[in-house]
Amino acid sequence: MRGVVLFLLVFVLLPFLPLGVWRAYLLDAGVFLLLYTALALSWDLVARTGQLSLAHGAFFGLGAYGVGLLEPHVGTLPALLSGSLLAGLSALLLGSVTLRLHGLYFAIASLAFSEVLRTLALKLPFTGGPIGLPVPPAFGGAPLAPYYLAFAVLAVAVGLSLWAEHSPFRLAQAACRQSEPVARVLGVRVVRVKLLSLLLGSLVAGLAGGVYAMKALFINPYEAFSLGRAVEALVIPIFGGLYTTLGPLLGGVVLVGLEQVLRLWIQEGYLVVYGAILILAILFLPRGLLGLWRRRRG
């Protein structure tokens, strides 16, 4: 818990630190770090039930398009909330149809859901089609608005994750993850637990997508509904430590920070080095950074 509080404290104070000539770059990178970490926490909420979701890129994209379409008419915060609710409604629709599936079957169904949404965004005229959609900046272009909106999204994700980690809901999620038949015998309503987890994760992912759109100022279906976004959402918790709040926070800082450093130093081809580091981490850190830290403390 102290590590989570320290993490949030560092990022809430970052704009006030003497960052010198790196200030603009670090604050821009900080926005994406906060958003991707929030997305990772939202994925981890679903993974705690044993489900492998590849739909978080779709929830992210729905939040982004919801903001892009609504912000010019209703303003920043109503558009953000509407985009998040749109992602939540899509999660309820997806979950009601697919959450009786297990393992890879659910993963394939969630991936198909993402591809369907991307195809719709490409074909529907009001989304801008393959050309994309311009998005107004948050609060009329206030300089630090995207940063603090991203921080607020992460704070929501952390709050939901801590609640799930320290409430009786954690036991229901763990029972679903270990054995659904046993969980049913114990009185756990498995589908309801998985559906609630998917709903909470989708709401956070939708918020993250909305803030991302207002930061990027432009979205298109290939970027908004990218499979890479869903993969990044699952890689960060695996690298940091699954089924915890601190693990995805650590993973987000290290992986997103590492990507930015490699992009500056190596430029072309940095993804090769980044991928090699991920492979080595998965091979030699099966429980992530948090597992390594706990083992050394023990």
Rank of each mutant, 00 (worst) to 15 (best):
L6I: 12
L6G: 11
V10N: 01
L14A: 11
L17G: 06
P18K: 02
Y25E: 02
A38E: 04
A38D: 03
W43G: 10
L45P: 13
R48N: 09
L52S: 12
S53R: 01
H56V: 09
A58T: 14
F60Q: 12
V67W: 10
G68E: 10
G68K: 11
E71H: 15
P72M: 03
G75C: 15
L80M: 09
L81I: 15
S82K: 08
G88M: 03
L92Y: 11
L93I: 02
S96E: 15
L99T: 07
L104K: 04
L104Q: 05
F106T: 06
A107P: 00
V116K: 02
K123G: 07
F126E: 02
P137N: 09
P137V: 00
A138H: 13
A138M: 14
F139I: 09
F139D: 12
G140T: 13
A142S: 15
A142L: 14
A142Y: 05
A142M: 13
P143N: 04
P143F: 13
A150M: 08
A150D: 09
A152C: 14
A152L: 15
V153C: 09
L154G: 09
A155R: 04
V156Q: 12
A157M: 01
V158I: 00
H166R: 15
Q173G: 02
C176P: 12
C176R: 13
Q178P: 04
V185L: 14
V188P: 03
V188A: 10
K194P: 08
K194F: 08
K194N: 06
S197D: 11
S202H: 12
G206W: 14
G209I: 08
G210M: 03
G210E: 09
G210Q: 11
V211Q: 14
Y212A: 13
A213F: 13
A213C: 14
L217Y: 11
F218L: 13
E223W: 10
E223C: 02
G228Y: 02
R229I: 05
A230M: 12
E232V: 01
E232S: 06
L234H: 03
F239I: 15
L242P: 05
G251L: 00
G251W: 01
V253Y: 00
V254A: 03
L255M: 07
V256L: 01
V256R: 01
V256F: 00
G257K: 01
L258T: 11
Q260G: 00
L264F: 00
W265A: 01
W265M: 00
I266H: 01
Y270D: 00
L271Y: 07
A276F: 06
I277K: 06
L289E: 03
L290R: 06
L290Y: 09
G291A: 12
L292M: 04
R294E: 14
R295N: 09
R296C: 02
G298P: 01
